[in-house]
Design a binder for these strands. Structure first.
Length: 463
DNA sequence: CTAGCCTTGAAT
DNA sequence: ATTCAAGGCTAG
């Protein structure tokens, strides 16, 4: 064994890098940032940044700029709701189960990494995602119910364009690097996780038995499936990140009046899209592609991936009768049916039917992970420079999926076929959703200046 | 203000 | 009875 015993909570505080002392206000942080966050929220402190609101926060300098420190706290996903208004001591809050699952998840990841012999430095992807619906919010879709109010000024957010997001080698675009996403950017830049093994220039994986063996998922899981799973982002981090992002967006909007549910959903979709791009960018095989091909593939399948993301969340964690959002909140389907327009309501209805079909098939995370690659590596996309590589990956993903289903299901061929049928339904659903979004965009209802719009335009300008 | 240590108390 | 993330306290 090369592995030292408990590497347990090795991860540094996401705010300042100091030693983590436990879960505080939604995530693992150090004692000092816990205290700082508490004081700030409890006493409703307002800070001002003497510089450019982009101070670096580390252990040595964290005292220098409380404004930026608090900004970073929110940005990494510390939860205002976890600071108690009544100051009641002791006990447990609604985050309890979430912490528990996060722990289990980290443990599994560790085991998986050990089993597979992977070398993932920090911020590695994860095997099981946390169950996000634990902190159910009472509120419906009204934005003011969704997130707690106030807090300091919002950072103006310039969304990155797809091409500035994609290059993985060179430092990314200037906008992306600045303010809000800095923490993520830095992480992913340094950790380019799933690095391809030495000597495998081609996109081919051989199943060496050493890797084909044990994993937490059970013996003999196809190597590629494990590999795909490891590329998946951490659902809990994602949830925190997007919640924080939307919160900032809202504080910005508050000055301009009520944003409306649809705009909020667009921001959510936009942020999800960002995470999808980030997933792709750091994923095995995809990062070997030329950026031009990467862009073509993503432009072609973003809506499918987006809808698959929503659907997989429902299948894996959702409850009947409600829609589970990426932020962990739940919306009643009946509310959607009554409040949304007929087109949207129809789309949601159709999506829900697909969710039910997949639920009956009992799709798991492994299968969703394969399907994502199946969708991303679409050899039918026009003018690919590395068409063959794309085709090869799709075949391998399909093979891995087939192998995996045959191991978990007795009537695997029927199940596999059914699964592929679901994918074609997903495709037509995503086309409809795209058209719908595009229409609303044309009537000026989609918030401007984001990745969502860029994607919408890309497809409509490329016949 | 900061941050390390202490006390609480619902969930397990 | 134990856990452990909340809030509280207090030197520096």
């Amino acid at each position: 064994m090369e592995c030292r015993h408990d590497v347990d909570l090795e991860e540094p505080c996401p705010v300042c890098g100091d030693k983590v002392s436990g879960y505080h206000y939604g995530l693992l942080t150090c004692e000092s940032c816990k205290g700082f966050f508490k004081r700030t929220v409890q006493n409703n402190k307002k800070y001002v940044c003497a510089e450019n609101q982009e101070c670096r926060i580390d252990k040595a300098q964290r005292k220098r700029c409380p404004f930026c420190r608090f900004q970073k706290c929110l940005h990494v996903g510390m939860r205002l709701e976890a600071v108690r208004a009544d100051r009641m001591r002791g006990g447990r809050n609604t985050f309890g189960p979430m912490y528990k699952r996060d722990r289990a998840l980290k443990q599994q990841r560790k085991a998986l990494i050990q089993a597979g012999g992977f070398r993932l430095e920090s911020s590695p992807p994860v095997v099981y995602s946390a169950h996000p619906r634990d902190f159910t919010f009472a509120g419906g879709l009204q934005p003011d119910c969704i997130l707690p109010t106030e807090q300091n000024d919002c950072i103006s957010y310039q969304p990155p364009s797809l091409c500035s997001l994609l290059p993985s080698s060179s430092p990314v675009g200037p906008q992306y690097q600045s303010v809000p996403f800095s923490n993520w950017t830095i992480k992913s830049k340094h950790t380019n996780n799933c690095d391809s093994p030495p000597g495998s220039a081609a996109a081919t994986y051989t199943d060496s038995d050493e890797l084909h063996s044990s994993s937490p998922q059970g013996p003999g899981m196809p190597r590629l499936v494990t590999e795909f799973l490891l590329c998946d982002p951490d659902e809990l981090q994602l949830q925190n990140k997007i919640s924080a992002r939307i919160q900032q967006e809202q504080t910005g909007w508050r000055r301009l009046g009520n944003p409306g549910t649809f705009s909020l959903m667009c921001v959510m979709a936009d942020q999800t899209l960002l995470s999808i791009v980030e997933w792709a960018r750091t994923s095995i095989f995809f990062k070997q592609l030329k950026v031009s091909d990467q862009m073509k593939l993503l432009h072609s399948c973003w809506s499918e991936l987006l809808i698959l993301d929503i659907i997989s969340r429902q299948v894996l964690y959702g409850r009947v009768g409600s829609l589970l959002l990426v932020t962990g909140q739940e919306v009643q389907l009946s509310d959607i049916a009554s409040q949304a327009g007929p087109t949207l309501a129809g789309l949601v209805q159709r999506g829900q039917e697909l969710v039910e079909r997949l639920h009956i098939l009992k799709l798991d995370r492994q299968e969703f992970a394969c399907i994502k690659f199946l969708i991303l590596f679409n050899p039918d996309v026009k003018d690919l420079e590395e068409h063959q590589l794309v085709e090869s990956v799709q075949e391998q993903a399909e093979g891995a999926l087939l192998e995996y289903t045959s191991r978990t299901s007795s009537q695997h061929l029927g199940r596999f076929t059914h699964l592929l049928l679901c994918l074609s339904e997903l495709r037509s659903l995503s086309t409809l959703a795209e058209d719908y979004l595009y229409c609303r965009h044309l009537s000026g209802e989609v918030p401007c200046n984001n990745l969502l719009i860029e994607m919408l335009h890309a497809k409509h300008s490329w016949p």
